[in-house]
Amino acid sequence: MSAYILVQVDIYDNEVYEEYKKLTPDSLIPYGGEFVIRGFPVEAIEGEWKHDRMVLLKFPDRQKALEWYNSENYQKAKKIREKGSSANFFVVG
């Protein structure tokens, strides 16, 4: 069964975040991951949205999603992301 990682991002340094965005696509490939949503703005039609960006990633299964998140390549990208933003990651499925 497919699994998804939903990410809420608050960006405070766009230049650093752009560096991170360049690294993420290639890190997904070995795990069968793909972007479903990658962008902003997000408009809340019910409730509230208080973040700058939403990303939704799709993986073949939960194991692959978690392997990607914990992979050496993504952890390198994550260190860059943390210099320019804060984020919440959720795995579903």
Rank of each mutant, 00 (worst) to 15 (best):
G33K: 00
I45R: 11
D61P: 08
E15I: 11
V42I: 13
I5A: 13
K78L: 15
E48F: 08
P41S: 07
W49E: 01
F90I: 15
R81V: 05
G84L: 02
M54F: 05
R81L: 06
L66K: 15
L28C: 07
P60T: 13
A3T: 08
G32C: 01
V55Y: 00
I45P: 01
Y31P: 01
L28R: 06
R81Q: 09
Y69E: 10
E18M: 08
H51L: 01
K64C: 14
P41F: 05
R53N: 01
E15M: 10
L6I: 14
E19S: 07
G47E: 09
K50L: 13
S86Q: 14
A44N: 04
N14P: 03
E15A: 15
E67C: 10
I37G: 00
E48C: 02
V92Y: 10
P25V: 00
L23G: 07
E34A: 11
V7W: 00
P30F: 12
E48T: 14
V55G: 00
Y12H: 15
G93E: 14
L6T: 12
E34Q: 12
Q63W: 12
W49T: 04
K50H: 12
I45D: 02
I45V: 14
K83E: 15
Y20M: 00
I11Y: 02
E46G: 11
N88D: 09
N73F: 08
E43L: 11
K22L: 10
N70Q: 14
P60C: 12
L23D: 05
K21T: 11
F35R: 03
E82Q: 14
Q8C: 06
H51F: 11
W68E: 04
W49Q: 04
D61I: 13
F89S: 04
Y20K: 01
L28D: 03
E48K: 13
A65T: 11
E82A: 07
E19N: 10
L28N: 05
I29A: 13
Y12C: 04
S71T: 12
D13V: 02
K83H: 04
D26V: 09
K78C: 07
Q75E: 11
A87V: 09
W49D: 01
T24P: 00
E18G: 04
E67W: 13
K58S: 06
V92N: 04
Y17H: 09
V9R: 06
E19G: 03
R62E: 14
I29D: 08
F90M: 13
